[in-house]
């Protein structure tokens, strides 16, 4: 296993996750870095929510973990979630929020709704979430 995916390891502005019980710590990491980068708390918590949904999606669909990084760009905070799915896996296109009484299918629609920009990177092996600050 790639050392970069070791559970809970913190390397500067990135942190890895491998199991569901890692998610709470990763959420705190994303929120705190986003606030430190200048996002209002409510906006930082939306970024945290979106990152959590992507991490859950990775755990649920790959049975493996991934890596989260947070950095700043001019006018924006960026959070990237990367996993081991093959290059080109993620198709473009926004997820649509299902009906209120639907039993599932909300995770990626929540990501699309709460972030200012959602894009893929690294040949589709990573999703980048941008929040204007």
């Amino acid at each position: 296993m790639n050392a970069a995916y070791d559970t809970g390891r913190t390397m500067g502005d990135e942190m890895s996750f491998a199991v569901a019980t890692d998610l709470a710590g990763l959420r705190g990491f994303v929120r705190d870095r986003a606030v430190a980068a200048g996002l209002a708390t409510a906006r930082a918590e939306l970024l945290m929510l979106a990152a959590s949904e992507l991490m859950s999606n990775t755990l649920e669909h790959t049975g493996d973990g991934g890596l989260v990084r947070v950095w700043t760009e001019a006018g924006a905070v960026v959070c990237e979630v990367r996993d081991r799915r093959p290059r080109g896996f993620r198709p473009p296109g926004a997820a649509v929020m299902p009906a209120a009484d639907a039993m599932r299918g909300r995770g990626l629609a929540i990501v699309e709704q709460v972030c200012d920009v959602v894009s893929t990177a690294a040949g589709g092996t990573a999703v980048q979430l941008r929040m204007t600050r």
């Binding site: 959590s52 039993m103 909300r106």
Partner: peptide, 9 residues
């Protein structure tokens, strides 16, 4: 303090 799509489901 936190609820995600799995909790909503």
């Amino acid at each position: 303090r936190f609820l995600d799509s799995s909790g909503i489901h």
